[in-house]
Simulated scan of single mutants.
Amino acid sequence: MAETAEEKVEERERVLDTPMDKEFDWAKKDDTTPVRDALWDHYMEADGRDTMKTEAKMHPYLDMSNDEVAANAEKLLKN
Rank of each mutant, 00 (worst) to 15 (best):
E23T: 04
S65T: 15
S65H: 02
Y43S: 07
A56F: 08
W26L: 10
G48S: 09
V35S: 00
E68S: 12
E11S: 04
M64N: 02
A38G: 06
D50W: 11
A38M: 06
K57P: 10
M52P: 06
M64F: 01
K53Y: 10
S65I: 06
A71D: 12
R14E: 12
V69K: 02
K78R: 10
K22T: 00
D50K: 15
K53T: 11
W26G: 01
D37F: 04
T51A: 15
A46K: 15
D50S: 14
K78E: 05
M52N: 13
S65W: 02
P34H: 09
W26P: 00
A73T: 07
A5M: 10
A27T: 01
K22M: 01
E6H: 05
N79M: 10
K22E: 05
E68P: 09
P60V: 09
T51N: 12
D67W: 02
M20S: 07
T51E: 15
M1N: 13
Y43A: 03
D41A: 12
E10L: 12
D21Y: 14
A56K: 14
L16N: 05
T54G: 00
Y43D: 06
E13W: 15
W40G: 01
A73I: 07
L76C: 03
A70Y: 02
H42P: 03
A46L: 13
E13G: 03
D17S: 08
T54Y: 04
D41P: 01
M64Y: 08
T32V: 14
L16K: 02
E23N: 04
V69A: 00
A70M: 03
R14P: 00
L76H: 07
